[in-house]
């Protein structure tokens, strides 16, 4: 494919078009993915997550500048929520990153969560592959707010960073349940505000717990707006990456990740088998009515659809 050839040479416009194809999952998507897949697996993927208002975009901006100084090409994917009611989204993370736009070695893409047809994780993983294939070496995937997408990102990323700030209090309590635990590095941004000590104390509960890989989560204070703590954080990111490589975790997790990807792809394709066919969409809607009226259970309805699609 000409498009893929161009993107492999680092052509940003081609990469951008390929991303749209994968995001929209149009007819060419499978071909694009197939063509770029052999060229992926070189990049270090870093997930950044945490509550809104903690300054994630600013942190990514600061880290991107730092890795540019270290001569790494940087890809950034900024994910913001899509409205479940209108399907629209306001994607504003570029506001923070304006001055990187013209940097040859940086590619930034904003994405809506588009909470339908396969979910965020599929599209995000695919888009990361494009950035990987075009030669980006450090790829940041930043997710907004709270929700499932954070956990999804942890499955895709090699290094997961959870961003906190002083004074969040209750939010931290709520987060403890899941999101904090995915963090390989816990960042307390806006560390010039009061209450850093109590935030760190809260985090220590998580930090003390070793991950299955043997990595002990670390904390880092930053003031991203003033580039404070950014060099140390970048060092920490590299340290974690080195650990993954040396301990063999990168490889073992790679197999896990492949399994996840295959699972996601499988369910997406099963889904498409049904929804690509207009007559089956009609049948789907009939079955929805029946399930709603309790005339059929959802599992039997799914079996029936798969049968009609010629799968079961």
């Amino acid at each position: 494919m000409e498009l893929v050839e161009r993107l492999l040479r680092g052509d940003k416009r081609a990469a951008a078009k390929a991303i749209s194809i994968l995001e929209d999952y149009d007819k060419k998507a499978a071909d694009v993915l197939g063509a770029i897949y052999p060229h992926t697996g070189k990049a270090h993927i870093i997930g950044i997550t945490g509550p809104t208002g903690t300054g994630k975009s600013t942190l990514v901006f600061a880290l991107a500048k730092e890795f540019r100084k270290r001569d790494k090409k940087v890809g950034i994917i900024a994910i913001d929520p899509t409205s479940p009611f209108t399907g629209g989204a306001l994607l504003g993370d570029r506001i923070r990153m304006g001055s990187l736009t013209l940097d040859e070695g940086v590619f930034i893409r904003s994405m809506g969560t588009r909470g339908h047809a396969g979910g965020t994780s599929r599209a995000t993983a695919d888009v990361i592959k494009v950035l990987d294939a075009m030669g980006m070496q450090k790829i940041f995937a930043e997710t907004a707010g709270a929700g499932q997408s954070e956990v999804d990102i942890a499955r895709i990323a090699h290094t997961s960073i959870v961003v906190e700030m002083p004074g969040l209090g209750d939010d931290i309590q709520a987060m403890k349940a899941g999101i904090l635990e995915i963090g390989d590095i816990l960042v307390v941004n806006k560390a010039d505000l009061d209450g850093v000590d109590s935030t760190l104390a809260n985090l220590s509960l998580v930090v003390d717990r070793e991950k299955p890989s043997g990595w002990k989560p670390r904390t880092q204070l930053t003031v991203a707006t003033e580039d404070k703590g950014i060099t140390d954080l970048a060092d920490l990111i590299e340290e974690h990456y080195d650990f993954l490589k040396q301990s063999g975790t990168l490889e073992t997790e790679g197999v896990e990740r492949a399994k996840e990807e295959l699972r996601a792809a499988l369910s997406h394709h099963l889904f498409l088998r049904v929804f690509e066919r207009p007559e089956l969409i009609g049948e789907f809607n009939n079955l929805v009515q029946m399930v709603a009226k309790k005339e059929m259970d959802p599992h039997s309805a799914a079996e029936k659809l798969l049968g009609l699609a010629g799968i079961a």
Partner: peptide
């Protein structure tokens, strides 16, 4: 003094 950057608000 540095320069101010606005928060992202719609």
């Amino acid at each position: 003094f540095g320069e101010y950057r606005e928060p992202i608000i719609y």
